[in-house]
Design a protein around this nucleic acid. Structure first.
Lengths: 347, 347
DNA sequence: TCAGTATACTGAAACGTTACAGATTGCCAA
DNA sequence: TTGGCAATCTGTAACGTTTCAGTATACTGA
């Protein structure tokens, strides 16, 4: 079978996916010209360019990802690395939606790379980098000294972290200002007369644990309120654990009359614990909690909430990685979002 | 630069990713032999095979996905097609975790393909098929006559649906038995003396809307209870809408004394509506609700719940697609999971 | 001895793309 | 007329893999 015969076959079999060769045959040009024309290269005549692009659009040409990837090494993939522990009211769907929204009109695909808590969090990142499976990576559960960030920085692969690091290295991130959140929560509680405050903290080890604890402590210092230590609890414990320990705490002589909680799920447990101890929200104790969906006010009207938008986190993180891939300076791709006001139930 | 020189370079630059050529050079064999040896082809000597596999393991060889994909057309990708409307307490993270769990020890990657409600749901599926971006697809929000399933069946691409279709076509699916759920819920409510029941139904148009409505109606027929129509509400409406309409309903003369709710988020709204009308859960009205996380009993102890496991849905759906890709008969990859008992708050 | 055959291996081609190094044409200045 | 140059276009090679069509060697049976 000679070359012309082959091309005619390509053309004839209407249900094969069109390739550059198909376009080349249809336009009477060479594949190189077609390739260059489609990406608006300067050395292609204006009319030729228009002609090629027209035909391409007509027959629904889409570049073969494998071909591009093999030739250029560009995967057109962003990977979101996720811990897969089952969590009540997980925010990962919001992040995914946010990321999706941003990459929707780009050639990028989003792949989800999971790891279980028993694994080293570095494993999935290593896999991605070594197997060259993605052009960019998004990680969460960021630590002050994060081996994953260090590793990717060494290997030169673009990434963004949900939460900041503290290693003196510069990379893109998006973060919620948890220092401000905790401080504002404390001020609000002090403002409504609460004097003994407990903190339901983020997981020890994550960067925003420190931010939250500091915001809590610093704001306490401005007021006449004091801290009731509650270090045995953090928001990644089970509902039952948090609930039990809250109930124990609330049965003690010196019990808190205010809580600051870093997550809505933990708040549900805390409230249950408070009620287990026979106390009443809004009367004996107030709770300020972060939430990512308008849920807590349905749960108990007395709750005081601050909203954190994880969909926004997703869009910002995606923008950051794409920005880095696109050549922007990593240092220019860092955002911190301020919390809104503490809001009480409105009618 | 001659061939040997080139190979030595490949070997020398220790940080390049090893390819079949690297392996061929190291073992002194041809690339073809190495390729065959790695996949246990029969015409390769036992010792050679072992030797190649040893070296491959030592240097951490991983087949280049783009190379494989270009040559064979196999993408090693499963796509999960998702509607990206912001939902309170979304279950998509559970499904993702379930799918991830199953594909973790396979070469498959999971890509998330989103579409917004304004789009035709067929669009993302068409894109996937036309661009050949996945070996298998998982879709949800399945309809009795589902154009996406029909389309993929025509194109011969393996897929699984979350929820059944009703087109006389056979394909893999996983479903929760919503008929049984609704029926069981009605029987339970009747059993505790409730006489006027309302249904908070799934979105009209989805297959499980029919299942739920039928289970509700059939079980009602067995009892002396009757239905209070509540057709203006379905679970994909906003919290505020459901809440308002529930409150309106509960202020009428003939109001329900029992609800069956197909989703936890809707249940929160229904309860709020009930309380807005000045009525009390457990005394004036009982609610049986599905939930996917142990959340509702923290919300109100009086709620009656039935659990639906979306992580299981994820694992079953993934198994189904992989099974079909692996050559199993589509008809053998259909599962329906029975609901557990209606459970009240336990101590 | 020799053809026949099983065993173990191999090079070349192809998948679709892009980068590189030309090739062709027309036009202009000298 | 000719050399030079800009403007367009083109073929070839390469990315890493698998498939195809072999080849070389040793063993078998008659």
């Amino acid at each position: 079978m000679d070359r012309d015969q082959k091309d005619r076959d390509d053309e004839a079999s209407a249900h094969e996916r069109p390739t550059l060769k198909t376009l080349a045959f249809m336009t009477g040009l060479g594949v190189t010209t077609v390739s260059r024309a489609l990406k608006d290269a300067p050395e292609i005549g204006a009319e030729t360019r228009r002609r090629v692009q027209l035909v391409a659009r007509q027959i629904g040409y889409r570049p073969n990802r494998a071909g591009v990837r093999l030739r250029t090494g560009k995967t057109n993939v962003i990977s979101l690395v996720l811990n897969t522990e089952r969590e009540i009211m997980s925010f990962v769907s919001d992040i995914i939606y946010g990321v999706s929204e941003v990459i929707a009109d780009t050639p990028y695909h989003l792949i989800v790379t999971p790891y279980s808590r028993s694994q080293d969090p570095l494993d999935p990142v290593k896999y991605l980098v070594e197997s060259g499976s993605a052009d960019g990576v998004i990680i969460s559960r960021t630590q002050p000294n994060d081996p994953r960030a260090r590793y990717m920085l060494e290997r030169g692969i673009p990434f963004a972290t949900h939460g900041r690091t503290d290693m003196g290295l510069v990379h893109p991130y998006h973060d919620f200002d948890n220092y401000a959140f905790a401080a504002e929560a404390v001020r609000h509680l002090a403002g409504i007369g609460r004097r003994r405050l407990a903190l339901v903290a983020p997981p020890v080890g994550l960067t925003y644990y420190g931010h939250t604890v500091n915001g809590f402590a610093d704001a306490l210092g401005e007021t006449s309120a004091s801290e009731v230590p509650f270090n045995t609890v953090s928001i990644d414990q089970s509902i039952d654990q948090i609930r039990t320990r809250t109930a124990q705490l609330m049965r003690r002589d010196v019990r808190p009359d205010g809580f600051v909680s870093s997550a809505a799920a933990a708040t549900l447990a805390v409230v249950a614990g408070i009620e287990d101890a026979g106390l009443k929200l809004g009367r004996d104790v107030d709770v300020v909690s972060k939430q990512s969906s308008e849920l807590l006010h349905l749960f108990r009207r007395e709750l005081l909430v601050v909203n954190e938008d994880f969909r926004l986190a997703g869009t910002e993180l995606a923008r950051a990685v794409l920005g880095w891939i696109g050549g922007a300076a990593p240092g220019s791709l860092q955002t911190v979002v301020k919390p809104g006001d503490v809001v009480a139930y409105r009618g």
